[in-house]
């Protein structure tokens, strides 16, 4: 009897001890696991930090007032890259100018008008799939349709339209998010006062959603400015004598210019320096734009308290 009791006690104690030991090994696992996670975030930050660091350090020495404002000279080895900056500006504005009205209209239809129907599902499906199309395929489409069939040639127009189509899904989803954030109660209040559906959209929904829509547009602006593949065959050229004079001219663009400097031309060692400069300008441009958008968005979230 006694022995049995003692045994039982022992095994009970053993269990407790096992439990404790288990706890300790759990703690060790947790420490190891958390360390690994910490290492992975360090990796992420290290990689990305080093990209910015190298480009900033090498690029800053190239950048000067002349670099920003002058046209290239002596077979791309001297002078500035102003036409590429201007070209990127035109292409980006053109693309957003095309995609924003379309995308906003689409978002308004989906959020405000659409009854649940097959048609709406098809539209949603095509937006999702359009968002997943590789950028080079947009380039092929732009080449076949805008450059060839419509006869716009390799031009700002073709490039803007191609980039615009690529930006469309992003603009739609940003606008949708902003429209959905407008409280239902605002719409009800407006309708209950005898406003029509369109009046409610125009006077209440859109003004309320406007800051959110703008943020989304800015975010997409940054993405469009940095795209290269869609303009390879539709808009970009390595060298123009001066600035573009119509929407039918070819343009230089910053991202394409980096690629061209690294792969074409005759003086790679000099060109690499210029490429660093272009990369730094592009990086600053894109980072500033997206940082701006993110700050704006956080401010809005705070004011809406959601």
């Amino acid at each position: 009897m006694h022995a049995e009791n003692a045994n039982r006690n022992l095994s009970f104690m053993g269990k407790t001890m096992g439990f404790k030991k288990g706890l300790r090994s759990n703690d060790i696992t947790q420490t190891i696991g958390f360390t690994l996670l910490f290492v992975s975030i360090l990796f992420t930050l290290f990689f990305l930090g080093s990209i910015i660091y190298f480009i900033a350090v090498q690029g800053i020495s190239v950048i000067s007032w002349e670099f920003l404002t002058e046209v290239p000279r002596k077979a791309m080895t001297k002078g500035g890259v102003a036409p590429a900056i201007v070209g990127t500006f035109y292409l980006t504005i053109g693309a957003i100018g095309f995609a924003l009205p379309l995308g906003l209209a689409c978002a308004i239809y989906l959020c405000e008008y659409s009854p649940k129907s097959i048609m709406v599902n098809i539209i949603r499906l095509s937006i999702n799939n359009l968002a997943g199309v590789p950028s080079i395929v947009f380039g092929l489409f732009g080449l076949a349709v805008f450059v060839k069939v419509f006869g716009f040639g390799v031009s700002i127009l073709s490039g803007s339209l191609t980039l615009g189509i690529m930006a469309l899904p992003g603009i739609i989803s940003a606008s949708q998010e902003a429209l959905l954030a407008v409280p239902q109660s605002y719409k009800e209040a407006s309708l209950a006062l005898g406003a029509t559906h369109w009046q409610t959209i125009k006077k209440v929904v859109l003004p309320t959603a406007l800051p959110g829509i703008l943020t989304g547009v800015i975010l997409n602006l940054g993405r469009v400015a940095g795209e290269t593949a869609p303009i390879l065959f539709t808009a970009a050229t390595f060298y123009t004598r001066g600035f573009p004079d119509s929407i039918f001219s070819e343009v230089m663009a910053l991202p394409y210019h980096i690629y061209a400097l690294m792969t074409e031309g005759t003086r790679p060692e000099v060109q690499a320096g210029i490429a660093y400069g272009c990369a730094l300008i592009l990086l600053c441009l894109v980072l500033t734009i997206s940082a701006l958008a993110i700050i704006l968005r956080q401010k809005q979230r705070r004011t809406y308290g959601s």
Binding site: L48, I51, G222, E227, A275, V286, L287, I294
Partner: peptide, 24 residues
Amino acid sequence: FLKPIIEILAGIPSIIYGFFGMVI
């Protein structure tokens, strides 16, 4: 701090990565 950083980094154009890969 980290969330916006990651998001901004996701927006760096691919040409920059290509360039970085090539020269560094």
